[in-house]
Amino acid sequence: MIPPAFEYLRPKTLPEAVGLLQQHGEDAKILSGGQSLIPMMKLRLARPSHLIDINRIAGLSYIREDGGFLKIGGLTREAELEASELIRTKYPLLLDTARVIADPQVRNLATVGGNLAHGDPANDHPATMLALGAQIVATGAKGERVIAIDDFFVSLFTTSLDHGEILTEIRIPIPPAKSGGAYFKLERKVGDFATAAVAVQLTLDGPGAVQKVGIGLTNVGGTPIRAKRAEEALRGKKLDAATIGAAAQAAADAAQPSSDLRGPAAYKTGLIKELTKRALARAAERAGK
Protein backbone atom coordinates (compact mmCIF):
# COMPACT_ATOMS: atom_id res chain seq x y z
CA MET A 1 0.00 0.00 0.00
CA ILE A 2 1.27 3.34 -1.09
CA PRO A 3 0.79 6.66 0.71
CA PRO A 4 -0.36 9.67 -1.32
CA ALA A 5 2.17 12.38 -2.16
CA PHE A 6 2.89 15.24 0.23
CA GLU A 7 5.40 18.03 0.77
CA TYR A 8 7.94 17.27 3.46
CA LEU A 9 9.09 19.94 5.88
CA ARG A 10 11.68 19.52 8.58
CA PRO A 11 11.77 22.49 10.98
CA LYS A 12 14.67 22.78 13.40
CA THR A 13 12.84 24.71 16.11
CA LEU A 14 9.46 24.64 17.73
CA PRO A 15 8.48 28.18 16.65
CA GLU A 16 9.43 27.27 13.11
CA ALA A 17 7.21 24.17 13.30
CA VAL A 18 4.29 26.14 14.68
CA GLY A 19 4.80 28.72 11.94
CA LEU A 20 4.74 26.05 9.23
CA LEU A 21 1.56 24.56 10.67
CA GLN A 22 -0.15 27.90 10.44
CA GLN A 23 1.28 28.70 7.05
CA HIS A 24 0.05 25.47 5.44
CA GLY A 25 -3.36 25.34 7.01
CA GLU A 26 -5.68 22.51 7.94
CA ASP A 27 -4.18 19.95 5.55
CA ALA A 28 -0.74 20.14 7.12
CA LYS A 29 0.02 17.53 9.74
CA ILE A 30 2.67 16.99 12.37
CA LEU A 31 4.81 13.91 11.85
CA SER A 32 6.16 12.66 15.15
CA GLY A 33 6.37 8.86 15.60
CA GLY A 34 4.15 8.33 12.59
CA GLN A 35 2.94 4.97 13.84
CA SER A 36 -0.73 5.92 13.58
CA LEU A 37 -0.46 8.49 10.81
CA ILE A 38 1.61 6.54 8.29
CA PRO A 39 -0.64 3.43 8.36
CA MET A 40 -3.63 5.74 7.81
CA MET A 41 -1.84 7.36 4.89
CA LYS A 42 -1.02 3.97 3.39
CA LEU A 43 -4.71 3.10 3.56
CA ARG A 44 -5.32 6.55 2.06
CA LEU A 45 -7.55 7.44 4.99
CA ALA A 46 -5.30 10.43 5.67
CA ARG A 47 -4.03 12.74 2.91
CA PRO A 48 -2.02 15.55 4.41
CA SER A 49 -0.73 18.11 1.94
CA HIS A 50 2.31 18.78 4.08
CA LEU A 51 4.06 16.75 6.74
CA ILE A 52 5.94 18.74 9.32
CA ASP A 53 8.54 16.42 10.77
CA ILE A 54 9.25 17.47 14.36
CA ASN A 55 11.62 14.59 15.08
CA ARG A 56 14.74 16.75 14.68
CA ILE A 57 13.59 19.47 17.06
CA ALA A 58 15.80 19.36 20.12
CA GLY A 59 14.37 19.39 23.62
CA LEU A 60 11.03 17.68 23.02
CA SER A 61 11.99 14.33 24.46
CA TYR A 62 12.50 13.98 28.20
CA ILE A 63 11.18 12.33 31.33
CA ARG A 64 11.84 14.28 34.51
CA GLU A 65 10.33 15.44 37.78
CA ASP A 66 10.16 19.18 38.11
CA GLY A 67 8.03 21.60 40.12
CA GLY A 68 5.73 18.95 41.57
CA PHE A 69 5.12 17.30 38.20
CA LEU A 70 6.42 14.40 36.24
CA LYS A 71 7.06 16.02 32.88
CA ILE A 72 7.15 13.97 29.73
CA GLY A 73 8.21 15.61 26.49
CA GLY A 74 5.70 15.19 23.69
CA LEU A 75 8.27 13.47 21.48
CA THR A 76 9.25 10.91 24.13
CA ARG A 77 9.09 7.40 22.66
CA GLU A 78 7.09 4.65 24.33
CA ALA A 79 10.28 2.57 24.49
CA GLU A 80 11.92 5.38 26.46
CA LEU A 81 9.10 5.28 29.01
CA GLU A 82 9.55 1.53 29.27
CA ALA A 83 13.28 1.89 29.84
CA SER A 84 13.15 4.85 32.24
CA GLU A 85 14.33 4.08 35.76
CA LEU A 86 12.09 6.85 37.13
CA ILE A 87 9.04 5.35 35.45
CA ARG A 88 9.98 1.83 36.51
CA THR A 89 10.30 2.71 40.16
CA LYS A 90 7.67 5.38 40.65
CA TYR A 91 5.04 5.23 37.91
CA PRO A 92 3.87 1.63 37.56
CA LEU A 93 0.71 2.69 35.74
CA LEU A 94 2.77 4.32 32.99
CA LEU A 95 5.07 1.32 32.82
CA ASP A 96 2.12 -1.09 32.59
CA THR A 97 0.70 1.01 29.79
CA ALA A 98 3.85 1.54 27.77
CA ARG A 99 4.57 -2.19 27.81
CA VAL A 100 1.30 -3.16 26.15
CA ILE A 101 1.20 -0.54 23.42
CA ALA A 102 1.55 -2.18 20.01
CA ASP A 103 4.84 -4.09 19.75
CA PRO A 104 8.56 -3.45 20.33
CA GLN A 105 9.31 -1.93 16.93
CA VAL A 106 6.32 0.39 17.05
CA ARG A 107 7.20 1.48 20.60
CA ASN A 108 10.67 2.50 19.40
CA LEU A 109 9.10 5.20 17.23
CA ALA A 110 5.66 5.88 18.69
CA THR A 111 5.52 8.92 20.94
CA VAL A 112 3.53 9.58 24.09
CA GLY A 113 2.40 12.89 22.63
CA GLY A 114 1.21 11.28 19.44
CA ASN A 115 -0.67 8.59 21.33
CA LEU A 116 -2.68 11.36 23.02
CA ALA A 117 -2.93 13.91 20.21
CA HIS A 118 -4.37 11.32 17.82
CA GLY A 119 -7.55 11.44 19.90
CA ASP A 120 -8.20 7.75 19.42
CA PRO A 121 -10.16 6.18 22.31
CA ALA A 122 -8.55 2.85 21.39
CA ASN A 123 -5.10 4.18 22.27
CA ASP A 124 -3.80 3.34 25.72
CA HIS A 125 -2.33 6.55 27.13
CA PRO A 126 -5.57 8.53 27.14
CA ALA A 127 -7.13 6.35 29.86
CA THR A 128 -3.87 6.34 31.78
CA MET A 129 -3.57 10.11 31.69
CA LEU A 130 -7.21 10.48 32.75
CA ALA A 131 -6.48 8.28 35.75
CA LEU A 132 -3.34 10.25 36.57
CA GLY A 133 -5.09 13.63 36.28
CA ALA A 134 -2.51 14.83 33.77
CA GLN A 135 -2.23 18.20 32.07
CA ILE A 136 -1.42 18.73 28.44
CA VAL A 137 0.89 21.50 27.37
CA ALA A 138 0.10 22.81 23.90
CA THR A 139 2.45 25.18 22.11
CA GLY A 140 1.09 27.51 19.49
CA ALA A 141 1.82 30.88 17.99
CA LYS A 142 0.91 32.62 21.24
CA GLY A 143 3.12 30.37 23.30
CA GLU A 144 2.16 27.62 25.71
CA ARG A 145 -1.21 26.82 27.20
CA VAL A 146 -2.11 24.12 29.65
CA ILE A 147 -5.16 21.94 29.08
CA ALA A 148 -6.59 19.74 31.82
CA ILE A 149 -6.82 16.17 30.58
CA ASP A 150 -10.53 16.12 31.37
CA ASP A 151 -10.98 18.88 28.76
CA PHE A 152 -8.65 17.36 26.19
CA PHE A 153 -10.63 14.64 24.43
CA VAL A 154 -13.48 16.15 22.46
CA SER A 155 -14.76 13.41 20.15
CA LEU A 156 -13.49 10.55 18.03
CA PHE A 157 -10.07 11.61 16.65
CA THR A 158 -10.63 15.16 17.90
CA THR A 159 -8.90 16.84 20.80
CA SER A 160 -8.99 20.39 22.10
CA LEU A 161 -5.65 21.14 20.45
CA ASP A 162 -6.06 23.97 17.95
CA HIS A 163 -4.83 23.31 14.46
CA GLY A 164 -1.81 25.53 14.96
CA GLU A 165 -0.78 23.86 18.21
CA ILE A 166 1.66 21.09 18.95
CA LEU A 167 1.41 18.85 22.00
CA THR A 168 4.79 19.50 23.61
CA GLU A 169 4.52 18.18 27.15
CA ILE A 170 2.47 16.03 29.48
CA ARG A 171 2.47 16.96 33.14
CA ILE A 172 1.50 14.48 35.79
CA PRO A 173 1.22 15.53 39.44
CA ILE A 174 3.87 13.62 41.38
CA PRO A 175 1.91 11.07 43.39
CA PRO A 176 2.24 11.28 47.17
CA ALA A 177 3.44 8.38 49.31
CA LYS A 178 1.18 5.34 49.43
CA SER A 179 0.17 5.73 45.82
CA GLY A 180 -0.07 3.01 43.22
CA GLY A 181 -1.47 2.40 39.79
CA ALA A 182 -2.15 -0.37 37.35
CA TYR A 183 -3.30 -0.84 33.77
CA PHE A 184 -5.20 -3.97 32.77
CA LYS A 185 -5.70 -4.47 29.08
CA LEU A 186 -7.36 -7.35 27.33
CA GLU A 187 -6.18 -7.63 23.74
CA ARG A 188 -6.81 -10.34 21.16
CA LYS A 189 -3.07 -10.66 20.63
CA VAL A 190 0.07 -8.62 21.08
CA GLY A 191 -0.08 -5.54 18.90
CA ASP A 192 -3.86 -5.25 18.96
CA PHE A 193 -5.87 -2.36 20.32
CA ALA A 194 -7.62 -3.11 23.58
CA THR A 195 -10.86 -5.02 23.53
CA ALA A 196 -11.23 -3.04 26.73
CA ALA A 197 -8.76 -1.73 29.27
CA VAL A 198 -8.84 -0.01 32.65
CA ALA A 199 -6.31 2.38 34.17
CA VAL A 200 -6.39 2.99 37.92
CA GLN A 201 -4.28 5.39 39.95
CA LEU A 202 -4.94 5.70 43.68
CA THR A 203 -3.50 7.02 46.91
CA LEU A 204 -4.29 5.43 50.28
CA ASP A 205 -4.36 7.25 53.59
CA GLY A 206 -2.78 6.06 56.84
CA PRO A 207 -5.48 3.56 57.81
CA GLY A 208 -5.68 2.30 54.23
CA ALA A 209 -8.74 4.11 52.93
CA VAL A 210 -8.77 5.57 49.44
CA GLN A 211 -7.76 9.19 49.56
CA LYS A 212 -7.38 9.94 45.86
CA VAL A 213 -8.33 7.87 42.87
CA GLY A 214 -8.54 8.18 39.10
CA ILE A 215 -10.00 5.60 36.73
CA GLY A 216 -9.77 5.75 32.96
CA LEU A 217 -11.31 3.40 30.40
CA THR A 218 -9.90 2.49 27.00
CA ASN A 219 -11.85 1.74 23.80
CA VAL A 220 -15.33 1.59 25.26
CA GLY A 221 -16.75 4.79 23.81
CA GLY A 222 -16.33 7.55 21.26
CA THR A 223 -13.74 9.15 23.53
CA PRO A 224 -11.57 7.85 26.34
CA ILE A 225 -13.75 7.73 29.44
CA ARG A 226 -13.07 8.82 32.98
CA ALA A 227 -15.20 6.71 35.34
CA LYS A 228 -16.09 9.46 37.83
CA ARG A 229 -18.89 7.59 39.60
CA ALA A 230 -16.55 4.71 40.19
CA GLU A 231 -14.01 7.08 41.67
CA GLU A 232 -16.70 8.53 43.95
CA ALA A 233 -17.66 5.05 45.08
CA LEU A 234 -14.12 4.58 46.35
CA ARG A 235 -13.17 7.85 47.96
CA GLY A 236 -12.76 7.62 51.71
CA LYS A 237 -13.45 3.90 51.72
CA LYS A 238 -11.34 0.87 52.43
CA LEU A 239 -10.92 -1.46 49.49
CA ASP A 240 -13.04 -4.35 50.68
CA ALA A 241 -14.83 -6.65 48.28
CA ALA A 242 -18.10 -4.74 48.48
CA THR A 243 -16.48 -1.38 47.75
CA ILE A 244 -14.44 -2.78 44.88
CA GLY A 245 -17.55 -4.47 43.51
CA ALA A 246 -19.57 -1.25 43.64
CA ALA A 247 -16.79 0.73 41.98
CA ALA A 248 -16.37 -1.91 39.28
CA GLN A 249 -20.08 -1.79 38.57
CA ALA A 250 -19.98 2.00 38.38
CA ALA A 251 -17.04 1.81 35.94
CA ALA A 252 -18.98 -0.68 33.83
CA ASP A 253 -21.97 1.68 33.87
CA ALA A 254 -19.76 4.47 32.55
CA ALA A 255 -18.65 2.41 29.55
CA GLN A 256 -20.46 2.98 26.26
CA PRO A 257 -18.94 0.34 24.03
CA SER A 258 -20.22 -0.74 20.65
CA SER A 259 -20.14 -4.26 19.27
CA ASP A 260 -17.42 -5.06 16.79
CA LEU A 261 -14.93 -7.78 15.87
CA ARG A 262 -13.45 -7.56 19.37
CA GLY A 263 -16.73 -8.61 20.91
CA PRO A 264 -20.28 -7.61 21.69
CA ALA A 265 -20.94 -4.50 23.74
CA ALA A 266 -22.18 -6.49 26.74
CA TYR A 267 -18.92 -8.40 26.86
CA LYS A 268 -16.88 -5.22 26.85
CA THR A 269 -18.98 -3.80 29.64
CA GLY A 270 -18.46 -7.02 31.58
CA LEU A 271 -14.74 -6.78 30.92
CA ILE A 272 -14.59 -3.24 32.28
CA LYS A 273 -16.18 -4.51 35.49
CA GLU A 274 -13.72 -7.39 35.80
CA LEU A 275 -10.64 -5.43 34.80
CA THR A 276 -11.55 -2.59 37.18
CA LYS A 277 -11.56 -5.06 40.05
CA ARG A 278 -8.20 -6.42 39.02
CA ALA A 279 -6.66 -3.01 38.43
CA LEU A 280 -7.91 -1.72 41.79
CA ALA A 281 -6.47 -4.72 43.60
CA ARG A 282 -3.11 -4.39 41.87
CA ALA A 283 -2.97 -0.62 42.36
CA ALA A 284 -3.80 -0.99 46.07
CA GLU A 285 -1.15 -3.66 46.45
CA ARG A 286 1.40 -1.35 44.86
CA ALA A 287 0.25 1.58 46.99
CA GLY A 288 0.72 -0.49 50.10
CA LYS A 289 4.34 -1.24 49.34
Binding site: T195, R262, G263, G270, K273
Partner: peptide
Protein backbone atom coordinates in the same frame (compact mmCIF):
# COMPACT_ATOMS: atom_id res chain seq x y z
CA UNK B 1 -13.49 -19.70 20.16
CA UNK B 2 -12.89 -16.15 21.30
CA UNK B 3 -12.90 -14.95 24.90
CA UNK B 4 -16.27 -13.25 24.35
CA UNK B 5 -17.91 -16.48 23.23
CA UNK B 6 -16.70 -18.24 26.37
CA UNK B 7 -17.71 -15.28 28.52
CA UNK B 8 -21.19 -15.26 26.98
CA UNK B 9 -21.62 -18.92 27.93
CA UNK B 10 -20.36 -18.34 31.45
CA UNK B 11 -22.70 -15.37 31.80
CA UNK B 12 -25.65 -17.39 30.53
CA UNK B 13 -24.83 -20.20 32.96
CA UNK B 14 -24.53 -17.75 35.81
CA UNK B 15 -20.85 -18.51 36.38
CA UNK B 16 -19.60 -15.00 35.82
CA UNK B 17 -21.14 -11.74 36.97
Amino acid sequence: ITPWKVWNILKEKGITG
